[in-house]
Amino acid sequence: METMRTLLDRSMQLLCCLLFITMVGVASWQVIARYILNDPSTVSEAFLRFSLVWLSMLAIAYVAGRREHVSLTLLTDKLTGAWKSAFEMSIEILFIGFSAFVLLYGGAQATANSMSQVYPMLDIPKGFLYLSLPLSGAIIITYSLINCVSIYRGCLRTRRLES
């Protein structure tokens, strides 16, 4: 399980970094084209808007999977042992439910509905923009399942140490 998490982590880090570096390059070109060449690029602005959605969704999936998202730990800090594990497991199950229903199902519907529409500046189907939703949903579900296994194994270790 840890090798799968490491592989997923490295893939997400690489993808997000490459996308961010590309966005910095395109934004730099936009500034040069607009202020030095006096010929602003409309494609770069559309690409940046498109890329920002993708980068945001992929980064959200990565951060949620690493359990480094913003959270209220008031309750979990007071819990110990099996209660803490059960609470953490229920949070992961909520993540799976939200990701499956909203991101996977809703994102797939939005993608399918907008594939026939064309993103005017980039001349690609708008569905590619919405494709970031089901993809990030699938990544969050994968991470959450890995987290559930880790929580379960941690709970088993704790029980063995107590007995």
Rank of each mutant, 00 (worst) to 15 (best):
Asp9Phe: 02
Arg10Val: 13
Met12Ala: 12
Leu14His: 01
Leu14Tyr: 05
Leu15Asp: 00
Cys16Pro: 00
Cys16Asn: 09
Ile21Pro: 02
Thr22Glu: 05
Met23Glu: 07
Met23His: 01
Met23Leu: 08
Val24His: 02
Val26Gln: 02
Ala27Thr: 11
Ala27Arg: 03
Trp29Ser: 14
Trp29Ile: 09
Val31Ala: 14
Ile32Trp: 13
Arg34Thr: 15
Arg34Gln: 06
Asn38Ile: 09
Asn38Gly: 05
Pro40Thr: 07
Pro40Phe: 11
Ser41Leu: 06
Thr42Ile: 12
Thr42Pro: 04
Thr42Asp: 08
Val43Gln: 10
Val43Met: 10
Glu45Pro: 00
Glu45Asp: 06
Glu45Asn: 05
Ala46Leu: 08
Phe47Gly: 02
Leu48Ala: 05
Leu48Ser: 04
Leu48Gly: 04
Phe50Ser: 00
Ser51Gln: 10
Val53Pro: 00
Trp54Tyr: 04
Leu55Pro: 01
Leu55Arg: 01
Leu55Ala: 05
Ser56Lys: 02
Ser56Cys: 11
Met57His: 04
Met57Gln: 06
Ala59Glu: 03
Ala59Val: 12
Ile60Arg: 01
Ala61Gly: 07
Tyr62Asp: 06
Ala64Met: 14
Ala64Gly: 00
Arg67Gly: 04
Arg67His: 07
Thr73Leu: 13
Thr73Asn: 15
Leu74Gly: 08
Leu75Gly: 01
Leu75Tyr: 03
Asp77Met: 08
Asp77Gly: 09
Leu79Phe: 01
Leu79Ser: 03
Thr80Gln: 14
Thr80Trp: 03
Gly81Val: 13
Gly81Gln: 11
Lys84Pro: 03
Ser85Glu: 11
Ser85Pro: 02
Ala86Cys: 05
Ala86Phe: 03
Glu88Gln: 15
Ser90Asp: 06
Ile91Tyr: 06
Ile91Thr: 10
Glu92Lys: 15
Ile96Arg: 02
Phe98Met: 14
Phe98Gln: 06
Phe98Trp: 13
Ser99Leu: 08
Ala100Ser: 10
Phe101Ser: 14
Phe101Tyr: 11
Val102Glu: 03
Leu103Phe: 15
Gln109Phe: 05
Asn113Gln: 12
Asn113Asp: 13
Asn113Glu: 12
Ser114Arg: 13
Ser114Ala: 09
Met115Tyr: 12
Ser116Leu: 12
Ser116Gln: 14
Ser116His: 14
Val118Arg: 08
Met121Ser: 13
Leu122Ile: 10
Leu122Thr: 07
Leu122Asn: 02
Asp123Tyr: 07
Ile124Leu: 14
Ile124Val: 15
Pro125Cys: 09
Pro125Phe: 11
Lys126Gly: 01
Lys126Cys: 11
Gly127Ser: 08
Phe128Met: 11
Tyr130Gln: 07
Leu131Ile: 09
Leu131Val: 07
Leu131Arg: 05
Ser132Tyr: 00
Leu133Glu: 02
Leu133Tyr: 11
Leu135Gln: 05
Ser136Asn: 04
Gly137Asn: 08
Ile139Tyr: 01
Ile139Arg: 03
Ile139Met: 13
Ile140Gln: 09
Ile141Asn: 08
Ile141Cys: 12
Ile141Ala: 08
Ile141Lys: 10
Thr142Ala: 15
Thr142Asp: 05
Ser144Thr: 04
Ser144Asp: 04
Asn147Val: 07
Cys148Gln: 14
Val149Glu: 07
Val149Asp: 06
